[in-house]
């Protein structure tokens, strides 16, 4: 980033030394440390991809930013304001700026409410008049490429991809500046997944919203992110430009992750496979070497 403007730019979200612990059931058992001091920042209008395996804590970061996880240390600053521990009322006020799209479009929409009611809820709560809310809903449905008559229908009348579009529209209702996207395409079919990703990019280019994009899929993160952070066991092991992290990673875990993703072509996948075996062998050798040095 040599551009003067971007150097001067203040990050929209700054996470520093974040720690999250979940209590473990049972008398005097040590709590489970989901995040062990994580630091991260997101610029306005930027997509920060967060990739890692299950249990690495990537989802927990997103939930901590949303105020849905128990923070035990460190801080989260949004737009210069400390949002680490907010009262319910202050958190509600922040909801206009930070929003979320969850992984599962089947449980993230209340099955008993029409699409119109689902989209109206955040609008009416924030004090927008009913008529203005109706206009905004039409605008939102248009933004996510759903027909305007969708407002009168129930979630079950829609496919997974369409439901995820509704969830995206709900997230955008209050014109947030940051949307936490928690595996938003991993429950979708391949062809739908590509279209929903393009919708995310399109919306970002139209509205300048920033994304914290959590995914286990390196190719998805690479497609949508400007920068990528790799998580491993509650820590960020590598951060950087998306092309670098997903193309020529430095950390051994990221290298393993990249090599493990299968390539959709038999010959190239065979080559990737032997590359991976060679990498694993060399990592084992260097591990062993480190052991002997000690």
């Amino acid at each position: 980033m040599t551009d003067v403007a971007s150097v001067a730019e203040q990050p929209l979200l700054t996470i520093s030394g974040l720690e999250v612990e979940f209590p473990v059931k049972g008398w005097r058992r040590a709590p489970f440390k989901a995040l062990k001091g994580v630091s991260l920042d997101i610029l306005p209008g930027e997509t920060m991809g967060l990739v890692g395996e299950s249990g690495s804590g990537k989802t927990t970061i997103g939930r901590a930013v949303l105020g849905l996880a128990p923070i035990t240390g460190g801080s989260i600053t949004f737009d210069g304001r400390d949002t680490t521990r907010l009262s319910r009322a202050a958190r509600r006020a922040l909801s206009a700026d930070i929003q979320v799209v969850f992984q599962d479009p089947y449980t993230s929409l209340n099955p008993a409410m029409t699409i119109g009611d689902i989209l109206a809820e955040p609008l009416l709560t924030s004090g927008i008049a009913r008529v203005a809310a109706r206009d905004r809903i039409r605008e939102l449905l248009d933004l996510v490429n759903l027909p305007s008559d969708a407002a009168d229908r129930l979630p079950r009348e829609f496919s997974g991809g369409q439901r995820q579009r509704v969830a995206i529209a709900r997230a955008l209702a209050l014109r947030p500046r940051l949307v936490v996207c928690d595996e938003p395409v991993s429950a979708l079919d391949l062809s739908t997944q590509a279209r929903v990703l393009d919708l995310f990019i399109d919306i970002q280019e139209k509205t300048g919203v920033a994304y914290l994009f959590v995914s286990h899929d390196l190719s998805v993160v690479r497609h949508i992110s400007h920068r990528v952070a790799v998580m491993y066991r509650g820590e960020i092991v590598e951060t950087g430009d998306a092309a670098t992290v997903t193309g020529a990673p430095e950390h051994p875990y990221t290298q393993r992750l990249l090599m493990a993703a299968p390539v959709p072509h038999p010959t190239r996948q065979a080559a990737r496979r032997s590359e991976r075996h060679a990498l694993l062998a060399s990592q084992q050798v260097s591990d062993a070497a480190r052991e002997t040095v000690r």
Binding site: L66, G67, L68, R91, R92, A93, S95, A96, I98, Q99, V100, F102, Q103, D104, T107, S108, L109, N110, E121, P122, T125, S126, A167, R170, A173, L174
Partner: peptide
């Protein structure tokens, strides 16, 4: 998840 979404929506 829709309860979480409602919380994030500021309800």
């Amino acid at each position: 998840l829709y309860i979480d979404a409602a919380k994030v929506s500021g309800l």
